[in-house]
Amino acid sequence: MPRTQTDSPLLDATQAAFLVGPVAINAASHDADRMPSITRAYGCRVAADRSEVVVFLSTARSVAVLRDLAADAPIAVVFSRPLTHATLQLKGTRPRIQPLAPGDREIMRAYAAAFSMEIIALGHAHGFSHALMAPAGDAAVAVAFHPEAVFDQTPGPNAGMRLGPKP
């Protein structure tokens, strides 16, 4: 029996697992003049029912994005795995900035370690890999949003294809 729109999460289980794996994460928004802002995120948490995604931003490094999100601008987040270049982009219109919840810092640390290992295995220097993930220890906030659109951005002819919801 087909599920209705409301009880069907946009993300499937495979996509949800991908988001919390060793992926590079970048979040973007824009200001009142539609100037885009961009920052890096250090880890991700997906709600058990897959209806909400949370990414962690360094407050010092994400001043512009956090200012734009605080002004109710929408969010776009891209997740890309260095090993395979598999890439997904999520978009949401009402992101919320929250303090880190218990356990979030542990998620950030585990993410930083896993991502460093992944890129070291690809040949990046230890120094570079650890420096890249060092901000996972910064003062941080959690940005939560309900994905309203999912796009495949893996390089190739299908890059940009909307995976959900289907128009």
Binding site: N26, A28, S29, P36, A76, Q89, Q153
Partner: peptide, 13 residues
């Protein structure tokens, strides 16, 4: 990061 006419941001590698 870019921004669409409808105000939706886009971010890509």
């Amino acid at each position: 990061a870019t921004c669409a006419p409808d105000g939706m941001p886009n971010v890509a590698k």
